[in-house]
């Protein structure tokens, strides 16, 4: 696996908001066809990191390289043009309109002048069905409103959309939170299928170590803006993951802490 070139290299990334240091020299590499799980407690800096990667914030220091070339993003549009697709928790879907209309929202296939161009519905429907199928969901009717889809299907729609519009690096922000058990599995299956496509690097942000262990190839643990541990899935033991998830504290320490509470 080491012979592969990383699709995105993040080295010594620093982000400061005034006097507050949100990220203090974070480095990580993500390879194509791999899921890189980014774990950490609230306030560890996960959100700041993905916001820097997706162009919402610009980095104070450090470098981001996509495909070996250094990039600087000033807007989310620039990041997405460079091939970084972010699927946020709210998924950016309009529940009231059809699957196809959501899939192509803002990038409709059309014939005619400007925004008055006529949408090519048949072509768009076909593409939507095809792209959703690629990552494992068969939709019978692409004209059905997104509101009728399950949470897992919506997640898949958002991922399929990001990939179709050129995302090589897919950032998934807590894709399994706020979903039922079955739906979570559906999302994880989707993540696995995207991984199996082979050419896409996935950054999976999650709270859930079980989900991370199920699909991730590499782990990076963040705490208070720094990397406190990283490694291949095969190298990490279950206890390591638990300890690092809790910000480096041992489970024994935590138990002691609780004992002192009266």
């Amino acid at each position: 696996m080491t012979d592969k070139k990383p699709l995105i290299e993040i080295s010594k990334l620093v982000k400061k908001f005034g006097s507050f240091t949100a990220l203090n020299g974070v480095s990580l590499n993500v390879y194509p066809g791999e899921v890189h799980a980014l774990l950490g407690d609230n306030g560890a800096g996960k959100s700041t990191l993905i916001k820097v990667l997706s162009g919402v914030h610009s980095a104070t220091d450090g470098a981001i390289k996509v495909d070996g070339e250094e990039v600087h993003f000033n807007s989310p549009r620039e990041a997405s043009d460079a091939g970084i697709g972010t699927v946020y928790q709210d998924l950016a879907l309009n529940a009231l309109t059809s699957v196809t209309r959501n899939f192509f929202l803002g990038r409709e296939i059309k014939k005619g002048p400007g925004a008055l161009g006529i949408m090519q519905m048949n072509e768009m429907n076909e593409i939507t069905i095809r792209e959703m199928k690629k990552i494992g969901i068969n939709i019978a009717n692409p004209e059905q409103p997104v509101g009728t889809m399950s949470g897992g299907q919506r997640q898949t729609l958002a991922i399929a959309r990001a990939i179709y519009f050129g995302a090589k690096i897919l950032i998934l922000d807590e894709p399994t939170s706020a979903l039922g058990q079955k739906q979570q599995m559906e999302v994880l299956k989707t993540v696995k299928r995207v991984k199996n496509l082979g050419n896409i690097a996935i950054i999976l942000i999650t709270h859930n170590e079980i989900h991370a262990r199920l699909v991730a190839d590499r782990f990076t643990f963040l705490s208070l803006g720094e990397v406190i541990g990283s490694g291949l899935s095969s190298e990490l033991g279950g206890d390591d993951v638990k300890r690092l998830m809790a910000g480096g504290a041992d489970i024994g320490d935590l138990a002691k802490e609780l004992e002192n509470v009266t």
Partner: peptide, 12 residues
Amino acid sequence: TQAGNWIYSTGG
């Protein structure tokens, strides 16, 4: 049209 999809999504 594309504008129609934009109108729906702006309100939706």
